[in-house]
């Protein structure tokens, strides 16, 4: 087992923590109230993950985890984090020509997502669509209602990161990355991030971790790549592949995250910016 890269928020200094949860190809470690995920290199980067090759996690939840001198140990594993390549996302796209390309490509993204959901037989989560619409209405017309709309979504759905959480992360990604070029996104992102921070405790530990990261503008690699392509229109031909990469995250998290991206794009499309355009 060898570490091959790490995210830019993985602590560089020594730390001590515990093993939070163990999965088929991933382990979550709790470090200073945050999660650090060690996962197979087949999965894409997140800000707080260490990617490794050829491993099968051998650790027990609750066991100790420690990083000293750049060597991370937990369970039966010891990983050398020194001199690892660090994945860092690019800065948000420049503020030129943002919204129209996003709106155009959204239809394509929606179509690919629809096929993905159909092909994998991912069932709809009761109440998710209606609550997502409430969030959209709040974002675009009733900013004061945003926290309440967020409360309806946080923790909604089965799984490790409930669907509502993933959807919120997708929406936050759009608003965060589009903020430099959109006054609407510039005000909607902090409003949504506030609601998310306020209610993050209502979901699973893992869901809360990714919600808090997103509220601070930190997202996984597939989401950053897809959203940047959408809001800049710079890599239109790559949108299908980027959409598929984002859809492949987790069991259903990818589909929910992309639903959030689409919701974010819709919010941009009905924003004052869009009307002005």
């Amino acid at each position: 087992m060898v570490a091959v890269s790490k995210g830019y928020l993985v602590p560089a200094a020594d730390f001590a923590g515990t093993v939070h949860s163990v999965f088929a190809t991933a382990c979550n470690l709790t470090v200073d109230g945050r999660l650090l995920t060690v996962h197979d290199a087949a999965a894409p980067h997140t800000p707080t993950s260490v990617r490794v090759v050829s491993w099968r996690p051998r650790a027990r939840a609750g066991g100790p985890a420690r990083c000293a001198g750049g060597i991370l140990t937990f369970g039966e594993h010891a990983l050398d984090l020194r001199a690892l390549p660090v994945w860092t996302p690019p800065p948000p796209p420049p503020p030129a020509a943002t919204v129209p390309p996003a709106i155009t490509a959204a239809r394509e993204v929606a179509r690919i997502r629809e096929r993905h959901v159909e092909a994998r037989g991912i069932p709809a989560v009761p109440g998710l669509a209606a609550r997502a619409e409430s969030l959209l209405e709040a974002l675009t017309g009733r900013p004061r209602d945003v926290p309440r709309a967020v409360a309806g979504l946080v923790g909604l759905g089965p799984g490790l990161t409930p669907s509502g959480d993933d959807l919120l992360v997708g929406a936050l990604a759009v608003l965060s990355r589009a903020a430099p070029g959109s006054a609407f996104a510039g005000s909607a992102f902090p409003a949504l991030a506030y609601g998310v921070r306020r209610h993050a405790h209502r979901t699973t530990d893992v869901g809360a971790h990714y919600l808090r990261l997103a509220a601070a503008g930190h997202f996984g690699e597939p989401l950053v790549n897809l959203v940047d392509a959408l809001v800049t229109g710079a890599a239109r031909a790559a949108v299908p592949a980027l959409t598929q990469a984002a859809l492949r995250v987790g069991a259903s998290s990818g589909a929910d995250g992309v639903a959030g991206v689409l919701l974010g794009l819709r919010a941009l499309g009905s924003s004052p910016d869009r009307k002005a355009a």
Partner: peptide
Amino acid sequence: VMGTGANLDNLREAGLGEVDAGP
């Protein structure tokens, strides 16, 4: 489901009763 607040609300609305669980 995981015992998040939103999911517990849904259980109640679906007639599955009050459940005292954590996320």
